[in-house]
Amino acid sequence: MGEYMIDLKGVSKAFRKDQWVLDDIHLSILEKEFVTLLGPSGCGKTTTLRIIGGFEAATRGDVLFEGKSIRDLPPYERQINTVFQKYALFPHMNVFENIAFGLNIKRVPKEGIQKKVKDMLSLIDLKGFEKRRVHSLSGGQQQRVAIARALVNEPKVLLLDEPLGALDLQLRKEMQVELKKIQEQVGITFLYVTHDQEEALTMSDRVVVMNEGRIEQIGRPEDIYNEPKTPFVANFIGESNLFEGEMKQDNLVYFQGKRFQCVDKAFADTEKVFVVVRPEDVELTGKTNGIIEGEVLRTTFKGIHYEMMIKSLEDEKEWKVHSTERRTPGEVVGITVRPDLIHIMKRG
């Protein structure tokens, strides 16, 4: 199984006795892959990262690096570097000294250091900033120095712990593109932690959705978005309408008091399920053409589309609907969903 860059085997972590913050994590990461750990705060994503970085020890399980266990290696003996949440740039050193820190430790000759730091500075677009104090830099600049400081050591894996969290929206978007570009340029594995789903979907090759110390789903961004495996993922990634329902037979699901065509098989008949429908997947039709009739409660303009809350006349449940077509509150409309846009997942 030597082909994985990093392989977590049943990693669990408890800071206090029997309070598990990580519960049996299995995760295999390939070379040159951009993997994102996504989840709400307290879901264990940062702890996972810190275990890989060597700052925490796993209570149970093993961490493999290129097939070899690194469980007991201190951080300074791992070929892994980290970009910290608040960058942790050394305040008593200037930009050059910060970036050269790891090289100095490894006793790289002076000229080598000079050259490497220079290359890094041009990679992150901060040529001529060598002598600047880190506190005189803007947030985005500090961010890039932190990345350079880690990358200059030529790690095989770069860990990034919510590195864009402290930046404003505009800068964050720019840095997302920048980061992806840097990753492609240096061609190493990036393991990225964030709670921002958009960030995760735009940058990653694969996304790992975590909740309460467990992995909910691992998959390509499209799969995570289009085929959520659990209600948590459906709710956390994008917006969704979640209903409780029951499979009637293959390709037929019953919820909201109606039968809907779907494309899911392999469920037992009358098996209880969750049904997820994305707001943008709901089709509004004329009053009588839909499967369900509903009354528009509120309409909000959201820029590209309108967001409407529609109360089902069937059982008073509310649907969230995104549409470019505006419906006025009070209007009664029909609701349908294309079979392939109905997502079914097991319940209980």
């Binding site: 060597g54 700052f55 951080p75 980290t82 942790a88 740039l89 880690a150 050591n153």
Partner: peptide, 8 residues
């Protein structure tokens, strides 16, 4: 942690 991460 950063210093250790960088090999110190």
């Amino acid at each position: 942690e950063a210093a250790k991460d960088l090999g110190a």
